[in-house]
Amino acid sequence: MTNLLQIENLSVEYKTRRGIARAVDNVFLNLEENKTLGLAGESGCGKSTLGLSIMRLVPHPGRINEGKILFNLDESLIFEGGSVEKGQIDLMQLDDNQMRAIRGRKLAYIFQDPMTSLNPLIRIGDHFTEIIQAHEEDVKKDEAINRGEEILETLGILPERITDYPHQFSGGMRQRVMIGLGIALRPRLLIADEPTTALDVIVEAQILDELATLKKQFNLSMLLITHNLGVLAQTADDIAIMYTGRVMEIAKTESLFEDPKHPYTQCLLKAVPDVRKPDKTLAWIAGAPPDLIDPIPGCMFRPRCEFAMEICATQPPPLEKLDTGQRVACYLYTKGVSKK
């Protein structure tokens, strides 16, 4: 299998008044074609920043410090004033125009809050025209609207509602419109940042179903960012667990749930309620994550970890591949470390 997306050594920093916060710290990730990679973690772990870095849209005062974002482009893109060659490209090396040609066309992004992600003064149809004409300049407005109507129909929205304004739609329908805009140009990679968190559970289930269908229909690969492990269990092929800007564990979905390796993953799974197992006792992790502006040396989970050892306070543990296939950043699995 080829990698559609390969992130190497990515770091993102936010310059705040109190100091510099490393929101994404030395991250390596791979996403294979036609797979869904789940990116999970709690608030402030850097998962959204990571998603936005791939689009190179980290908001001010954030900045990508170093790293490569390698993307496998399936066709050369030619646009007014430039072009991008097909093949494996490093998104970090593209200029603003090249990046813009890729955004929306090859990489699509869906934001958390459908209520605020559409321009309230622009009709749904014009949202479609805009994105289509931004990438295919010779498409006429009528044709763009027709394509928009087809997409709405696929998503179960009456095509005549294309002339409506966003406020005339319910939350679930707006998120469907967002998804529709996302897939309008048949992108290769869909990044969905908490796409269902703002929605009610029934609509959430409907949208997750629709995303799965679309993924098959359009051969999409997906990066699904969420704090909800239940959502990932149903949709992801692989899951990466993040904590304080670092990837703690990457594993196949089944093995992550059956045999979590990192102590943080283990604790997290014990804390997740399961509606099918009402008698499960929920655990919690005492304490809170360390301040990113004032990071601690070594493993950031150490103060909350019951297996913490001396070595954990020295260097951050590297992400290493185990014989069982998982990748874990924890000294418990490093050979030659005495487990005291």
Binding site: M55, L57, P59, D96, R100, A101, I102, R103, G104, R105, L107, A108, Y109, F111, D113, T116, S117, L118, N119, P120, I122, E130, I131, A134, H135, M178, L181
Partner: peptide, 19 residues
């Protein structure tokens, strides 16, 4: 959010500024 998502759709900065 809607300007962020417009950027993510690859709209030009001119059309984002004015539209």
């Amino acid at each position: 959010d809607f300007v962020m998502s417009a950027k993510a759709r690859g709209l030009s900065s001119f059309s984002i500024t004015y539209r």
